[in-house]
């Protein structure tokens, strides 16, 4: 694996499988009485969050702590940090603290890339969501969850529904799932598909119903409130009718198909409450898997791909 994880595009098929396999081993740790590994003892992981996202931050924090890393949470939201000069100053501060990895969430697309390539820091940079660009660890945990239910993803049909244009989850998932050999279909009203999507390694459709019959998993994306009054669709009700996963559509899914959502959900909007709470919804499991996948990412970035696998004797020295 490379030094940074900025985009799903950074991951080859082998890289991605290595993360997923490592995460699988680490997840078994959750069932052990002692949940901590000493692997990253003495290493410092900084959670640098320019945007509020308690669930992602907690997930990374738990992952780092279970690997015995020191964790510094640096929340820049609401402080004087709002413009880019401060990104540099913040980076220099982190460098001075001796951060080994910086987990960054930022509202501006490309900010993690900038942090990694500007020469301001020497640490590894993990993109924990940047603007409307990418969220690669979310895609990894989604792939991890999918694999647990469906096995090898090659040839599997995954339908991703909703605001693709503004979704970093959709971008990262489309790239990663395609790398893993899945057939991805993006379903959205034409206003919410990016110009140029035809160059992506996916199929697209404007019609949800036609994309349900044969799919192995359907991933519903959150619709942000600010889209509602910007003419992307006429009304929340019409969106829900045309693109929501309601009980009727849920019944049409193949029996083995699972339902995913990166959260937080708008129940009654893109997903009905019954569907969200059904046994085939893996939404809660996604959260659990998130910790294992982020442990794997931090482990592989910080200990190098040549290092011993966690869980083995060498790793617990």
């Amino acid at each position: 694996m490379r030094r940074h994880l900025l985009s799903s595009a950074d991951l080859t098929r082998d890289d991605a499988l290595q993360v997923l396999d490592t995460a699988e081993e680490l997840r078994s740790l959750a069932d052990r009485p002692i949940k901590k590994l000493p692997t990253l003892r003495g290493r410092t992981v900084v959670n640098l969050f320019f945007e509020d996202s308690t669930r992602t931050r907690i997930s990374f924090e738990a992952a780092a702590k279970r690997l015995s890393a020191d964790v510094i949470n640096f929340s820049a939201k609401g402080s004087s940090v709002s413009k880019g000069e401060s990104l540099k100053d913040t980076a220099l501060t982190l460098e001075a603290m001796g951060a080994d990895a910086v987990v960054i969430r930022h509202g501006s697309s490309g900010a993690p890339h900038r942090l990694a390539t500007s020469g301001w820091v020497r640490s590894s940079v993990v993109n924990a969501g940047d603007g409307t660009h990418e969220h690669p660890t979310q895609a990894l945990l989604d792939a991890f969850t999918l694999r647990r239910h469906l096995g090898d993803l090659a040839g599997r049909r995954i339908t991703i529904v909703g605001d693709v244009l503004h979704s970093r989850v959709a971008r990262s998932n489309a790239l990663l799932l395609a790398t893993l050999g899945a057939e991805v279909t993006l379903v959205a009203p034409p206003t919410l598909l990016p110009v140029g999507v035809s160059a992506w390694p996916v199929q697209t459709s404007y019609d949800l119903d036609s994309a349900l019959d044969k799919c192995d998993a359907v991933m519903m994306l959150r619709v942000q409130h600010e889209r509602m009054n910007a003419a992307f669709f006429p009304s929340a009700r019409e969106y829900s009718r045309r693109y929501g996963l309601d009980d009727r559509r849920f019944d049409r899914l193949p029996d083995h198909a699972i339902v995913m959502h990166p959260g937080p959900m708008n129940r009654g909007m893109e997903i009905s409450a019954t569907v969200a709470d059904s046994t085939r919804s893996v939404i809660v499991e996604q959260v659990t898997n998130g910790v294992a996948v982020r442990m794997a990412v931090l482990y592989l970035l910080l200990s190098g791909s040549d290092a011993a696998r966690p869980g083995t004797e060498e790793a617990v020295l």
Partner: peptide
Amino acid sequence: AQMNEGVMSGVLGLTGWP
């Protein structure tokens, strides 16, 4: 708008300037 609207803006997640 942040960059030309096209394949690159879609991939980079930057608002397009068509």
